[in-house]
Write a protein that binds this DNA or RNA. Structure first.
Lengths: 111, 111
DNA sequence: CAGGAATATTCCTGTAAAGGAATATTTATA
DNA sequence: TATAAATATTCCTTTACAGGAATATTCCTG
């Protein structure tokens, strides 16, 4: 997994931007307005998102329309695949059981 | 989605720790050794992971055994659910198609 | 073509966080 | 009980980054 993507999403405003763009592409000004931040900050955050490959922009005359790129989300999903075993798999419970057992044994098995 | 989790995973060493712990629980010393970092730094990073709820520790006498907590990964997975449409769904192509159409129309539909 | 709108960029400042070194704390062990 | 091992914590320094303000740039419109 790419730490850059995580880093880009670690900033609350940027995370909000992503959630905002989930609906549909948006203009810088519109993003700034909805997030209640100033335009320069919005541009800067969008730059970070863009450099992380999370977002791309399309020029529309005066405006830039930003939209989400699928790739990093797919990668995140692929990465998470390796961790699904943590909550989906039954082996967890077995593991927990064995560890609990280990804790108990020394006291019960005092021969 | 929680920016704190993202923030915790944004640091390369911590991301590596998580990937390391995916295999099985580990000791602080063992983690430090495998990541080739000093013990105090390992402890500090584990603290951050712990406070983000990504990791938990079990006391074993002299040692602390760290293991992954399922919750944040599940939450991440749930969050991603909303974005799967970005690459899985056919609506994307429809959306692209409509936008392409919009671009073309002004020229073709000159009535 | 002048003015204004939309956006990006630069400079400055404050703050958070990472790493290093030293040390405190707990526990096993000789 | 003194010592060593494993870990956490503290203090210090450096660096990265976020926000503010100002400004440059591009493009539309009257």
């Amino acid at each position: 997994m790419n730490a850059t993507v995580m880093s880009a999403l670690a900033e609350p405003n940027r995370l909000q931007m992503v959630e905002l763009l989930r609906g549909h592409p948006l203009t810088v000004g519109e993003i700034a307005r909805q997030l209640q931040i100033r335009q320069p900050q919005a541009s800067k955050h969008l730059r970070v998102l863009s450099e992380a490959g999370i977002v791309e922009s399309k020029v529309d005359a005066n405006r830039r329309i930003y939209s989400l790129c699928p790739a990093p989300f797919r990668e995140l999903d692929d990465w998470l695949e390796n961790y699904r075993v943590l909550w989906e798999d039954r082996l967890n419970r077995l593991d927990d059981y064995l560890q609990t057992l280990e804790k108990k044994l020394p006291a019960e098995q005092q021969d």
